[in-house]
C-alpha cells in the first residue's frame, strides 16, 4: 500500500507527435470548440426572433474581423469534426483499421475538411457579390 516508487508509464510529452494521436485529440478539441459555436447559433436565432435591431447587431459582430475569423475557425472545426466523425463511424463498422488505411484516411479527412472550408467561404463571398 502506498508504494510511490512504482515505475510510471512514460508521460505524454516524451512521445513524438503522430498524425493518429494528433487527429484524435483534435477531434475532441474541435467538438468542444463547436459546443461554444452552438451558442452563436442560439444567439443568431434569438436575435432574429427579437427583431431587426438585435439582428443587425449580431450581423455586425459576425461581419467584424474577429467575427469572420471565428466563423472561419468554426466552419473548419465543423467540417473536420464531421469528416473525422465519419472516419470513426467506419471504424465502428470494423473497417479501415490497418495502420496504412488509418494514416491514409487521416490525411484524406484533413484535405477534405480544408477544401470544404475554402469552398464554403469562396461561395459565401461570391453570394455577397464579391464584396469583402
Amino acid at each position: 500500500m502506498g508504494n510511490t516508487d512504482r515505475p510510471l508509464s512514460p508521460h505524454l510529452q516524451v512521445y513524438k507527435p503522430q498524425l493518429t494521436a494528433v487527429l484524435s485529440i483534435f477531434h475532441r478539441a474541435s467538438g468542444v470548440f463547436l459546443v461554444i459555436g452552438s451558442l452563436l447559433l442560439v444567439c443568431w436565432l434569438a436575435a432574429l426572433a427579437q427583431g431587426p435591431e438585435s439582428y443587425t447587431n449580431v450581423q455586425g459582430l459576425l461581419g467584424s474581423g474577429i467575427g469572420r475569423t471565428l466563423l472561419l475557425a468554426w466552419v473548419f472545426a465543423l467540417f473536420y469534426h464531421l469528416c473525422n466523425g465519419m472516419r470513426h463511424l467506419f471504424w465502428d463498422m470494423g473497417l479501415g483499421f490497418d495502420i496504412e488505411t488509418v494514416y491514409a484516411s487521416g490525411k484524406f479527412v484533413v484535405v477534405v475538411a480544408v477544401a470544404l472550408t475554402l469552398i464554403t467561404f469562396a461561395l459565401a463571398y461570391l453570394m455577397r457579390g464579391g464584396a469583402l
Binding site: 450581423q59 459576425l62 466552419v75 465543423l78 467540417f79 464554403t120 459565401a124 453570394m127 455577397r128
Partner: peptide, 10 residues
Amino acid sequence: FVASLVFVAT
C-alpha cells in the same frame, strides 16, 4: 445547414 448558411449568413 452549411449549404444554406452560404446564402443566409450575409
